[in-house]
């Protein structure tokens, strides 16, 4: 099963290396990894899609917490979340085909962001499944170039995964069963 793990990390040199090195060393499979700044200065947000069972993801979470630069880890798979990925596709497209491509763009609620006499760049922001479907439908025209950002995600509703936000009841139960101590802001602690 694919899990969406969000890690809030100190924005310091080498932190991406530490996280990537951990995944490599422990043999965790990364499907995608997206990194960017957050609402809080000095904190970066990594959204990591991990393929594996519950035991693997528990280890991923705990091992991430052992990194000193990792401040908070959340598994958004356990919550209702908005999940998005941006895709840019450069597709072969002459004047005659343009209408057909734009029809597809409409159906998938994507956008045409660049046009030339022989090509078009389509941008789509959606979850991976819809993007996969869009790409499959564009394939017959001839895909010249393709890039995907990897997944980013955010919990629905007023709750957040910010550093100081307390966790949902379900996550609390999970961490309780894993033996966490009751006090402290963080579900696990670096040791």
């Amino acid at each position: 099963m694919k899990h969406t793990v969000v890690a809030l990390v100190e924005d310091r040199p080498g932190v991406l290396n530490r996280v990537a090195s951990l995944f490599r060393r422990r043999g965790f499979n990364i499907d995608s990894l997206a990194v960017g700044t957050t609402e809080e200065q000095g904190i970066s947000r990594m959204t990591i899609v991990v393929d594996g069972g519950a035991g693997i993801v528990e280890q991923v979470e705990k091992q991430l917490y052992k990194l000193i630069d990792v401040v908070k880890v959340s598994d958004l798979t356990k919550e209702e979340a908005v999940i998005r990925e941006l895709v840019l596709v450069k597709v072969r497209c002459n004047r005659e085909q343009r209408r057909d491509v734009l029809d597809l763009v409409d159906i998938f609620r994507a956008q045409a962001v660049d046009v030339s006499p022989s090509s078009m760049i389509i941008q789509s922001v959606a979850d991976e499944d819809r993007n996969d479907a869009l790409i499959e439908n564009l394939r017959p025209f001839g895909i010249r170039e393709l890039t995907r950002t990897g997944r980013v995600a955010m919990v629905r509703g007023a709750k957040t995964t910010a550093v100081n936000e307390s966790e949902s009841a379900e996550l609390q139960r999970f961490h309780h069963d894993s033996g966490r101590r009751p006090e402290g802001d963080l579900p696990f602690v670096s040791d």
Partner: peptide, 15 residues
């Protein structure tokens, strides 16, 4: 003080 590092102390009373 390191926000990503808070060594564990006592055990969870329930556990």
């Amino acid at each position: 003080s390191i926000r990503g590092y808070k060594p564990a102390t006592t055990g969870h009373p329930g556990q």
